[in-house]
Design a protein around this nucleic acid. Structure first.
Lengths: 133, 133
DNA sequence: TATGGAGCTTCCAGTGGGGGGAAGGTCAAT
DNA sequence: ATTGACCTTCCCCCCACTGGAAGCTCCATA
């Protein structure tokens, strides 16, 4: 398989696939013409990576997950631990974003948004929360 | 004021302040010894930037917001529009993260996490959702 | 057989928003 | 005079790609 077909079947852009080879996540063979020659196992790995990335795992987490996937003697606790840590990080990120949303939505609602210059959003940014001068 | 005092009073690291000067967000004067000489207005701008960044606005949004803040003839609708767009982006990001959290938490709960190798997390990554082989 | 276009290769640079650290100048107190 | 804290510029590093240039190869068509 050439990279184009792998890209289509894995859903990953060719650039990303080359990058994944660069950093050692996949090791496709090479044809005589210098083209990358992907096996089904390479495609499978790339699809694995695509799904792991879609769940927000970092590249290094993906590398670990992939090696655990290929390790017959893995312990599921290792996998679960990585996933739990990532889940915690996601929840933390959500909490941060929700705090921003909270503040921002209040500010947006309190701004009349017309042609006049007074704006509680700018006032808040200028002097900090709770001050409306 | 030297950069250290401004850093302390604005809450921004010196590195960040230098970077903000680099990209033209602040323009402190220079003392004879080559040190940056910040005025109160510079400090005020930096604090403004710090609060805007804490609300997740991009640097370019911050640049716009700052120029609106300094523009006496602004219309609050311009500010509100930037804030609304950013709020929408935040909500979109939250939705993405919540989808990840949903999937991940199910996977984590379904993994026994012991010394055995079978792991529904890896199975899901290997074959896609809904397949447990 | 020539040609054209699609697909492949490598390499370099840039993204956003800074952070780390080196090499060197300056200031204030001892 | 020396120390140590502070300041300066400079360049590289992070993440996970993405865009683009220059130059291959392959295949179909005229």
């Amino acid at each position: 398989m050439n990279i184009g077909e792998v890209a289509e079947r894995s859903g990953l852009p060719p650039k990303t696939i080359r990058y994944y080879e660069d950093i050692g996540l996949v090791r496709p063979l090479r044809s005589d013409n210098g083209y990358r020659a992907f096996r089904e196992t390479d495609l499978h790995k790339l699809a694995f990576l695509g799904r792991a990335r879609a769940l927000g795992f970092s590249i290094e987490d993906c590398r670990l997950l992939l090696s655990l996937y290929e390790d017959e003697s893995r312990e599921s606790a290792q996998v679960k631990s990585i996933a739990e840590e990532h889940l915690t990080a996601i929840e933390k990120k959500i909490a941060q974003l929700e705090a921003m949303r909270e503040t921002l939505s209040h500010l947006v609602m309190s701004c009349h948004g017309d042609n006049r210059p007074d704006c509680p959003i700018l006032s808040d940014l200028a002097t900090g929360p709770g001050d409306r001068n």
